[in-house]
Amino acid sequence: MKARVHVSLKPSVLDPQGQTISKALRSLGHAEILSVRQGKYFDIELDSAVSKETVAKNLESISAEVLSNPVIEDFQIEILD
């Protein structure tokens, strides 16, 4: 079984890297770009013998405790198969 955890800054948190990317894209002629928010994702391979409910519960805990900083980041879990 595979899962993907998407981690991104909360909307209220400034994103200097996203702002820099946005400015660079506009300077390259992409005037349609209004803003960019950067993030990251983790592809995780899991034992398929474990139930999806257990996997979801464990990934929720792992995402909150290890993969993200809950003060400034949000995360979304996607079970791929």
Rank of each mutant, 00 (worst) to 15 (best):
L67F: 14
R26A: 08
L14K: 13
D15P: 14
E78H: 12
I79W: 00
I44T: 13
H6P: 00
Q76Y: 06
P70F: 09
G29E: 04
S68K: 04
G39D: 15
E45N: 08
Q17S: 12
L67W: 02
S8Y: 00
G39T: 06
A56T: 09
I62H: 02
D15Y: 05
R4D: 00
Q19S: 14
A64E: 08
L14F: 14
A64W: 06
L67R: 00
A3V: 03
S8H: 06
S68H: 03
K10F: 08
V36F: 02
P70A: 11
V55L: 12
V13D: 12
V71R: 10
E60P: 02
Q38A: 11
L28Y: 15
D43I: 14
L14V: 06
Q17F: 03
G29I: 09
Q19T: 11
V71Q: 00
T54W: 01
F42G: 07
G18E: 01
V66D: 09
I44L: 14
T54R: 07
A31I: 10
L34M: 09
E78D: 15
E45L: 03
E65I: 02
Q38G: 02
K52Q: 10
F75C: 04
L34W: 04
I21L: 15
N58G: 07
Q76N: 12
K52F: 02
G29V: 11
Q19D: 13
V55R: 04
I62S: 10
V13K: 05
E32F: 05
Q76T: 15
E45V: 06
V50Y: 06
V13G: 01
K23H: 13
I62M: 13
A3H: 03
A49I: 01
A64Q: 07
R37Q: 14
M1F: 01
V36H: 01
S51T: 15
K2T: 06
F75P: 02
L14M: 13
E60V: 03
Q19Y: 01
E73M: 02
L14C: 07
E73K: 03
K2W: 08
A24E: 05
A56D: 04
A49G: 10
M1K: 03
D43T: 12
I33D: 05
S61A: 09
P70L: 08
R37K: 15
A24K: 04
E32D: 10
A24M: 10
I33F: 01
S68I: 05
T20W: 00
K2I: 04
E73N: 06
Y41R: 03
L34D: 09
S48E: 12
S22A: 15
P11F: 06
D47L: 09
G18V: 10
K2R: 15
F42K: 07
R4L: 10
P16N: 00
G29L: 12
K57A: 15
M1A: 02
L14W: 10
I79V: 07
T54A: 09
Q17K: 03
I33E: 00
D81V: 00
R26L: 07
K23P: 02
E45S: 14
I77H: 01
R4S: 03
A56V: 08
L34H: 13
L80W: 11
E78Y: 08
Y41N: 15
Y41K: 10
S48H: 07
Q76A: 07
S51R: 09
Q76V: 05
R26K: 15
L9I: 09
M1W: 01
K2F: 08
V50S: 06
K57S: 07
G29Y: 12
